[in-house]
Structure formats: structure tokens, C-alpha cells
């Protein structure tokens, strides 16, 4: 990582937390839909060899969102799970190319990127709502929340992604 990349990731970390807690946590679309766009950080984070650091940063990110929204450590638990599973998801979506040194997200096609993002969102939300509701009498409620909020998060993430994406040469 270059020093420039440190700067970008720190800014992204702070801005995504602020956007999440000040804007998206207050949307309450249909009374309960609050997209969790902060997981874009995990999607955009460079593909480094140092996975331990990545897992730890993701834990901090989740914990910060938790402290702001009074949800104990539910965000932290689901974000850390997603951080651990990210290489597996990416390998599944992008194939063997992912292992190569010069692999970049911008070199892949749109369908692959959307699949990858959607998978990450669904896994994160599944862990999150299982911990939040925490009872198997409410399986239907969990499924309803996972599906509707995943969709909202995916749409919002794609919009944010296209807004802040690096222009292709």
C-alpha cells in the first residue's frame, strides 16, 4: 500500500461511518428499511496479503457503527464475518484471476462486480439480523428483513459506487 492508499482508506472509513449514522440510519423507509452502506468499505478495500489487519479494521468499523446506533456489537460481529469470508466470495465471483498480482476490480465486468457485492451484502445482513432478532420463532421476519434491506443496500451501494468510482482511462 502506498501512502496515498492509506489516506484514501482512512477518509473512506470516517466518511462511510458518518454517512451511515447521520443519513442512512435515519431513512426508515417503510418504517424499517435502513440500508447499511458502510460495508462498501469492505468491498473497496485493496486486496492485500495482510488479511489480519483487514479483519481487525473491519471489526473497528463495525464497532464504531455499533456505538453510534446503540446496537451493542451486532454490526461488529457481522462485519468481521464478512471480512473473513471476503477472499472466498471474491474467488467465487472472479475466478482464478483473483489470485493474480495485477488483479483490479476495474478490470472485471459489471455482472461479476454486482454479483460479488450482492453476495457480500446478503451474507452480512443474514448474520446481522440473526443476531439482532435472535429467536427462531421469527424466521419469517428475519427472512423478510434480510431480503428487503439487502435489496435497498444493494441499490444504494451501486448508486454510491457509480457516484464515486474512478473514471476508466
Amino acid at each position: 500500500m502506498t501512502s496515498n492508499s492509506y489516506l484514501i482508506n482512512t477518509t473512506r472509513f470516517i466518511l462511510l461511518i458518518l454517512v451511515q449514522v447521520l443519513v442512512f440510519n435515519r431513512l426508515n423507509f417503510f418504517g424499517y428499511i435502513n440500508p447499511m452502506v458502510y460495508i462498501l468499505f469492505l468491498y473497496w478495500y485493496p486486496l492485500t496479503q495482510n488479511r489480519s489487519l483487514f479483519i481487525f479494521i473491519s471489526f473497528l468499523l463495525g464497532l464504531m457503527v455499533d456505538i453510534f446506533s446503540d446496537t451493542m456489537a451486532i454490526h461488529a460481529a457481522s462485519t468481521v464475518t464478512l471480512a473473513y469470508l471476503r477472499p472466498t466470495i471474491m474467488r467465487f465471483c472472479f475466478g482464478v484471476n483473483f489470485e493474480l498480482q495485477n488483479f483490479k476490480l476495474t478490470n472485471t465486468n459489471r455482472a461479476q462486480r454486482i454479483t460479488c457485492l450482492a453476495l457480500m451484502i446478503v451474507i452480512h445482513h443474514f448474520v446481522f439480523f440473526n443476531l439482532e432478532i435472535f429467536s427462531y420463532e421469527n424466521v419469517l421476519l428475519i427472512l423478510k428483513k434480510v431480503s428487503s434491506i439487502s435489496l435497498a443496500t444493494l441499490i444504494m451501494s451501486l448508486l454510491l459506487g457509480s457516484l464515486f468510482s474512478v473514471k476508466k482511462e
Binding site: I55, F59, G62, M72, A73, A77, V80, T81
Partner: peptide, 14 residues
């Protein structure tokens, strides 16, 4: 191991 540790911490708090 790091993942299990962090997940256990957050799970315990939850």
C-alpha cells in the same frame, strides 16, 4: 483464530 476471537467478543457483548 483472529476472526473467531473478534466474533466471540462481539457475540458475547450481544
Amino acid at each position: 483464530l483472529l476472526y473467531v476471537l473478534l466474533f466471540t467478543i462481539s457475540f458475547a457483548f450481544t
